[in-house]
């Protein structure tokens, strides 16, 4: 029975990793076609860095991801604090409004933002892409900051002010450090969501601005360049090493505790 269970997990892993292993293999394949193996090469890794289209898409993905994550983290953190200070009634209303984009499918979010930009006559491009990413990231930040605020000792901020701190000092020295884990995980979630997004980006970009997802989507119709495989393999390897490394270090420290909260997965 125990063997059977392990075999089952093994099969699921094989299912999940088969296409990834294949993709990494193709990134070393010395042939443009995916049908045959033309020998081992590092050509695609070299050519990757001189491909202007891919590098610019990578740049867009990273800069949009970083900017959207920073801005939505600031907006979402202040939003969560504002929500926290509201009275119960209005807070419930605001919370359901903020949760709306998460209930909606990505297509609806993308289309609705496209309509907004079209009506406001904003030229589709980098700015609209950034605005769209910020707007679908904010709810996730709010959601990860709110629980931390609820755990906050309500008298602490008052105590700080009694002891002579200005409201600003009270915020930066007392409240912010306490909710920082929530802020940070919100930031990571926003970054991941933005980097991985395709659907919303597809509807809200224009005039030659495209991120990696859109570039891959366009390529998929006429064949994906092995250079993209090389780039994805690099990204995957980096994330893999980072996450496995972090978790292994933790496992050693905690002696393999099964507590899920301790795993470092930005989801």
């Amino acid at each position: 029975m125990k063997k059977l269970r392990k075999v089952y997990i093994g099969l699921i892993m094989a299912f999940l990793y088969a296409p990834i292993v294949l993709l990494i293999l193709y990134s070393f394949n010395d042939s443009k076609s995916r049908a045959n193996w033309g020998g081992f090469t590092l050509r695609w890794y070299k050519e990757l860095f001189s491909d202007a289209q891919i590098i610019s898409a990578l740049g867009t993905t990273l800069s949009i991801g970083f900017l959207a994550a920073v801005i939505s983290t600031i907006l979402g953190t202040f939003g969560a604090i504002a929500l926290y200070q509201m009275k119960r009634g209005p807070r419930q209303v605001m919370l359901s409004v903020v949760n709306l984009p998460m209930l909606n499918s990505e297509v609806v979010t993308g289309v609705s933002l496209m309509l907004l930009f079209a009506i406001a006559q904003i030229q589709m491009g980098y700015v609209t892409l950034l605005l769209a990413h910020i707007s679908f990231c904010v709810p996730y930040v709010v959601l990860s900051v709110m629980p931390k605020l609820r755990q906050l000792e309500p008298n602490l901020a008052e105590a700080a002010q009694d002891l002579g701190a200005t409201p600003r000092q009270g915020f930066f020295k007392v409240i912010l450090p306490d909710i920082m884990p929530g802020v940070f995980s919100g930031f990571l979630m926003a970054l991941t969501m933005s980097i991985d997004d395709f659907v919303v980006s597809f509807f809200t970009t224009g005039s030659g601005v495209s991120n990696l997802s859109i570039t891959i989507y366009t390529m998929a119709k006429r064949g994906i360049s092995p250079k993209i495989n090389a780039l994805s393999s690099l990204i995957f390897a980096a994330v893999f090493i980072l996450l496995v490394g972090l978790n292994l270090r933790d496992l050693k420290k905690t002696g393999g505790s099964k507590n899920i909260e301790k795993v470092k997965i930005p989801y």
């Binding site: 296409p19 990834i20 998929a220 893999f240 996450l243």
Partner: peptide, 23 residues
């Protein structure tokens, strides 16, 4: 180490889903 296995299950999501589907 169940959490490590769980992480391995989530990890594929870090590769662009279009690429994985294409694969």
């Amino acid at each position: 180490h169940p959490t490590l296995w769980l992480m391995l299950i989530i990890l594929p999501m870090w590769m662009n889903f279009l690429l994985r589907t294409y694969s």
